[in-house]
Design a binder for these strands. Structure first.
Length: 271
DNA sequence: TGCCAGGCCGAAA
DNA sequence: TTTCGGCATGGC
């Protein structure tokens, strides 16, 4: 099917934004996206027009929501004042096209536990290996094989050899113990997303292997709480070099997370 | 080759 | 409460 998308939407910028790790570039200006056991091949045709290898019903019930099409990112960007904050303005212009996806929360949390103290290519490699060892093998519409992201049960059932194959390094125990807690019912996964941002942050940081940074990424990318503001080494540099007098979080509420994402991508791409 | 990466834990101060 | 060493491994 074809769709016309007029709001901010740039496949490459989203794929490289560090929020998702299973977007793979394919032929003809396309990307293959794996999400909730399904796979979408999406191609930019021309201008605002995109070709998707799914039905209209599938697009409306799954992918439109995943791509956060109910949000207007042009409006969110328009709240930035060029004069009072030229850096953020420039970052948002340069990274225009990024959206905050509505990803599967389980996949997000495991992914961001894996992400700590690693660069993005290494994170992607580990997640592909994990999916290969514990996910379900399927084929996309081109006949290419892909692997779904594993369930908690599937991770619990992995052999030590398979876990080692994923190259999680010292994060092995964080991932396996968390999966065990979810399967045993020791942690109520749905219950993690109850309360205001502060309460959810606290629930998440109680998990072994989850600190403030991973928890903030989880709020923003897993629970779609757009005001969450993850501070990693890149954002720390931004705050130190561009906002030494303080960053105006109040001004940018409730979209601090979106603006953070523009700054992250912009600053990282500049290097 | 050595330094860095969407950091966290646990001990020490 | 804040600071700091150790940590597995790949990317560049």
């Amino acid at each position: 099917m074809r769709v016309e998308i007029k709001d901010d939407f740039d496949l490459k910028k989203i794929a490289d934004s560090g929020q998702c790790f299973r977007w793979q570039p394919i032929e003809d200006n396309g990307y293959r996206i794996i999400h909730r056991g399904k796979c979408l091949c999406i191609y930019k045709v021309d201008g605002y027009v995109y070709e998707l290898d799914c039905t209209k019903e599938e697009y409306e019930s799954i992918w439109s929501d995943y791509l956060d099409m109910s949000e207007d990112y042009g409006t969110i960007r328009s709240k930035i004042d060029k004069k009072s904050d030229p850096f953020l303005y420039e970052a948002a212009e340069h990274e225009r096209g990024i959206r905050i996806l509505r990803q599967d929360p389980w996949e997000s949390l495991i992914s961001f536990i894996i992400s700590q103290n690693r660069n993005i290519p290494a994170i992607k490699a580990s997640i592909e290996k994990l999916s290969e060892k514990a996910g379900v093998q399927k084929k996309d519409t081109r006949g290419e094989i892909y692997y779904t992201f594993p369930t908690p049960e599937a991770i619990v059932n992995m052999s030590d050899e398979d876990v080692a194959y994923c190259k999680f390094g010292y994060r092995d125990k964080y991932i396996t113990e968390f999966a065990k807690s979810v399967v045993s019912g020791n942690i109520d996964f749905e219950g993690l997303n109850v309360g205001d941002d502060e309460e959810v942050l606290k629930s998440l940081t109680n998990i072994y292997g989850v600190g403030k940074k991973v928890a903030s990424c989880m709020l923003l990318f897993g629970f779609h709480r757009l005001n969450a503001f993850p501070i990693d080494v890149w954002i720390k540099r931004v705050l130190e070099t561009e906002y030494s007098d303080g960053y105006p979080f109040e001004v940018y509420s409730p979209y601090n997370g979106v603006y953070q994402q523009y700054m992250f991508a912009y600053y990282r791409n500049k290097q």
